[in-house]
Design a protein around this nucleic acid. Structure first.
Lengths: 224, 224
DNA sequence: CGGTTCGTTGAGATCGGTCAACTCAAGTGG
DNA sequence: CCACTTGAGTTGACCGATCTCAACGAACCG
């Protein structure tokens, strides 16, 4: 099921040997990394595999997931263009990563980044900050999971709206099943909650994958 | 309600100026930090306060928590002797921290640690690793929250048993309410689940705060 | 000995899950 | 162009796990 395509080096535009100034770290991965494409539903890495690379989404959407012993699936996070993923505590991936839609990423060898970070304090700090952001996001995820279905869905929509910088119109790249597995609900509950929110005119659902936010403050109140 | 007591410097046993070798980092905080005691239920820091210090538990137990808009409380984590806490992404605490029982901690100024880490790659890495461990723990917490009450309680007991290195006999430092707010359940459900597990002889509950694990493999199977 | 806090237990209500039927849109091939 | 298939999403009826509300029991403490 691995449908990777078109591996190619991305060359750095920074002149060789020139000092790296802090504001350039944001682009570090792109400069050092190799580009790669993944087809819809293809695996980028698997749970338990050695964490050899660090990834940054160029376009498309990635989900990380874990299959539990009883077959249920939990989605850890969704990553969209600009997001870093694959940053792991140990040297094994604790989740697997799959492309939700046709997705382009750049990937860098962990060992290379680590070696650089050991010599370069600012890069080390950058990586730490990325991990901290991830931590903060998972903490927010925990707060979602203790709420009611309406609150979870409201929170999810607001999160997606913020992250895609969309102005009250969210184009969801993921299926109802993905949303359900992210929020710890079933597809039926997701569907029913969308129609509830639509009937109370907090949102509109012109097509299944497009959600329009009609009453943001009411949604925020739900999210509490 | 701040009942802090007995602030005192902990002197370093490392000769001034001697190089710090990697295996000593574990004790870095103790060496640099000031000791402090907190009474049961007293606040160590509050949500939204500037994150000035980094803490390490010497004895006792600490919980981090957050009060949601509707009054519900979510507990982020419990910290026991040896655990580091207060490590934050931004420069504000996103949770508050309270002592569950009479607790001793050592605390170090964040700014001091940060300054050192900027010059010392190994220390920087140590801090990053601590953040990664925290991340991993919160991810496990997410996995708990999507399970049934029995599974959550079983998982919680196994976690506590592992962390306290106790041999099938866990002395819980926290109340039923604390457990409930950690697992996203109610005290009634916690209580009922304990008695269920006791009736099926997976555990014994000689006193409310002491749990004996009688069938670890069955508990693990529940935890799946 | 009351008062207070913490934990347990019971009865009924409620939210979300399960199972099943149905709709809709997008292919696919004759 | 149309019949057929397929996958995703929606909706309804019913069920069960967990919550809510309330009473009760046990330990602790002035």
């Amino acid at each position: 099921m691995l449908t990777r395509t078109a591996t190619q080096k991305v060359s750095s535009s920074r002149p060789f040997g020139s000092p790296v100034v802090p504001h350039e770290y944001q682009g570090m991965i792109e400069m050092m990394g190799a580009a790669m494409s993944f087809a819809r539903n293809s695996e980028i890495y698997g749970e338990g595999e050695p964490a050899e690379y660090l990834y940054k989404v160029v376009s498309g959407t990635v989900r990380t997931s874990k299959i539990l012993a009883d077959g249920r699936r939990q989605i850890g996070a969704f990553y969209i263009a600009g997001d870093l993923f694959g940053l792991e505590a140990g040297d094994e991936h604790t989740f697997s990563a799959e492309a939700i839609s046709e997705t382009k990423v750049v990937m860098v060898k962990r060992s290379a980044i680590m070696a650089m970070a050991a010599r370069d304090g600012a890069l080390a700090r950058e990586l730490w900050t990325a991990t901290s952001r991830e931590l903060h996001h998972v903490q927010e995820h925990v707060l979602l999971l203790i709420k009611s279905a309406q609150e979870r869905v409201a929170g999810f929509l607001l999160e997606m709206a913020t992250r895609t910088r969309s102005n009250d119109c969210v184009e969801l790249p993921m299926s109802r099943q993905d949303i359900a597995d992210y929020l710890g609900l079933t597809i039926e509950t997701i569907s029913r909650t969308f129609t509830q929110l639509e009937h109370s005119t907090l949102i509109a659902v012109p097509t299944a994958r497009r959600i329009e936010i009609r009453n943001r403050s009411a949604l925020k109140r739900l999210n509490s």
